[in-house]
Design a binder for these strands. Structure first.
Lengths: 143, 143
DNA sequence: TGACACTCCTTAGTGCACTAACTATAAGCA
DNA sequence: TGCTTATAGTTAGTGCACTAAGGAGTGTCA
């Protein structure tokens, strides 16, 4: 016993399983908004600041540009944002919310409470977990 | 302020980012074993019990059979396991480690310590996070 | 000015993860 | 026994996430 390879003792397994389990909760909640969970996170970032460059979104979301590129095209196809070359630096791509993209925020305001209700855990507990995960993110990205 | 949609306040974002950041640490460590991270988790499950059915693996790993099916075929192609129909119930598929699959465990024994070292966080802290995540998994799957 | 290095994004390729639809076997029951 | 329902796994299709390679624009500096 005390096996270092025991599945249920691995932090990485708990992380992966928790991430997928919680995101699964979002699926039915985000479906009426026409968003997947990664798309929802991109919208959260843009609701905080728009326009912004693809590279800035990647920094905020810890995502590779190769992941964002097709994702942003889908959001553009959905009419939620525009993608235009920056005139000062033609390499950069400015991502900017459309009116529809800004308007979607009203619907999104109801999302967090629905998830908390489904989880049935006190918000203070969730916030504590989030803070510990934030430390973990920093540790992993510093390595 | 106190915006409910602020990206850095979302538990789901912290979960997704932490999961991807930590799994990224495994990539170079698992590469010499010829395993991806999901494959590593499947091997952990099989090292605990083999043979076992696809459905049992799915229960242990919180994965859909449609996810496991191609993944197990890749591990079979790598010579780490065999997939054979159960003679008592021809619907079920028994997944069993090969000698190579069992032997790989020796190399895997060094993995957890390498990850902990890269993270640079005390093990007690990691265990506390894991236990909280386990509760979160239960809450999400009970919903 | 022209070569070089660098940055920003895109494309191609692989693998994971899900839903929906399907095949095949098994079990329940009139 | 034969019909119906349920279960186990596979396939198809979509989207995410990564690495590697590449194209296009920018900056530097001899």
């Amino acid at each position: 016993m005390n096996d270092p390879l025991e599945l249920d003792r691995q932090v990485c397994f708990a992380l992966a399983a928790a991430s997928r389990s919680v995101i699964a909760l979002y699926r039915p909640v985000l479906e009426p908004l026409g968003l997947t969970h990664p798309q929802y996170l991109v919208m959260l970032a843009l609701w905080e600041r728009s326009p912004r460059r693809v590279s800035h979104l990647g920094d905020a979301l810890f995502l590779e540009p190769a992941t964002l590129s097709p994702l942003l095209k889908r959001l553009e196809a959905a009419g939620l944002l525009t993608r235009t070359r920056n005139s000062d630096d033609e390499r950069a791509l400015d991502v900017e919310l459309t009116d529809a993209g800004r308007a979607l925020r009203e619907k999104a305001l109801a999302v967090p409470a629905q998830i908390v209700a489904r989880l049935g855990m006190p918000v203070s507990r969730l916030e504590a977990i989030r803070d510990e995960l934030t430390e973990l993110i920093e540790a992993a990205n510093a390595a």
